[in-house]
Design a protein around this nucleic acid. Structure first.
Lengths: 140, 140
DNA sequence: TAAAAATATGCAACAAAGTTGCATTAATGT
DNA sequence: ACATTAATGCAACTTTGTTGCATATTTTTA
């Protein structure tokens, strides 16, 4: 299973024309095995002590994967970048509500965001991030 | 004009039952004079050297204003918190498109987000943040 | 396939944004 | 006006991410 992700990772990296290194394969393999976006620290945890990888190298690999379009990064409320492979993009297609007073976030499962939003010609939608902000029942 | 904002700020702070201090009035006044969300650093710049205000105090005031519901904070792609008074909420009601490869952001003025999204009972919408992510014409 | 060129990695030091502890100062209630 | 309570300022710290440079690994090419 993990081997499979690593093969896929290697293939994806090869396709970019960039160098295939064990570190890159390892990191991209971890991202492929994950459906949600994960942070630098979470990736380090998944690596464990088996194959030690320098903090800075991991940062640079993540940056490189983003630049090559194999992953993309999103900023979260904890000021950390989280990374996800672009192939799972579109898997979290529902809206959120965030209370601007108590900051609680809930999922608005009634709202489907797969709707085709009108984009300029040539643009391709992968994912829609929709957050309604306001006051929740307790804070209103 | 600025005086007016300060009076309004003072009134808002009084209404929370919290202490009315010159620092709080100053900061909230600045936020009221601003239509968009601004960062800690940008607030410091607007303060200038007239009324020196400690870095940490400013952080704590902003946190306090958020807790009291007079302002709310949003995280941006530069990993900085930006703060805005809740009264201007709703002023930036259109969608964005962000390219997941080149990270360029454009405004999708065709999409109006004022639409009434179905919320749970008691919830009140103030603002809608809608970002379509994908590939722009140049990267697709 | 061995050497040269190009690029990735690891280490140390650094930077920016935000946080915590504590003594001092200012605002409010009596 | 004084006591009480809360806000401010300062110093030191934490966390996340970045930069410079020497070393090691890929890839190219001869």
């Amino acid at each position: 299973m993990l081997v499979n992700f690593n093969e896929q990772a290697e293939e994806m990296i090869r396709h970019t024309g960039g160098r295939i290194t064990s570190c890159r394969v390892l990191v991209l393999g971890i991202l492929l095995a994950e459906k949600k976006a994960i942070s630098h620290h979470e990736i380090e945890e998944r690596i464990g002590d088996d194959q030690p990888l320098d903090r800075v190298t991991l940062y640079r690999i993540l940056e490189w994967l983003s630049k090559k379009g194999l992953a993309h990064k999103v900023i979260s409320d904890d000021r950390k970048w989280r990374f996800r492979t672009n192939i799972y993009t579109g898997s979290h297609q529902h809206a959120h509500f965030k209370c601007s007073r108590c900051t609680t976030v809930i999922c608005l499962s009634d709202i489907k965001t797969e709707y085709c939003w009108p984009l300029p010609p040539g643009y391709r939608s992968q994912e829609v991030e929709l957050t309604v902000k306001g006051l929740c029942a307790a804070c209103a």
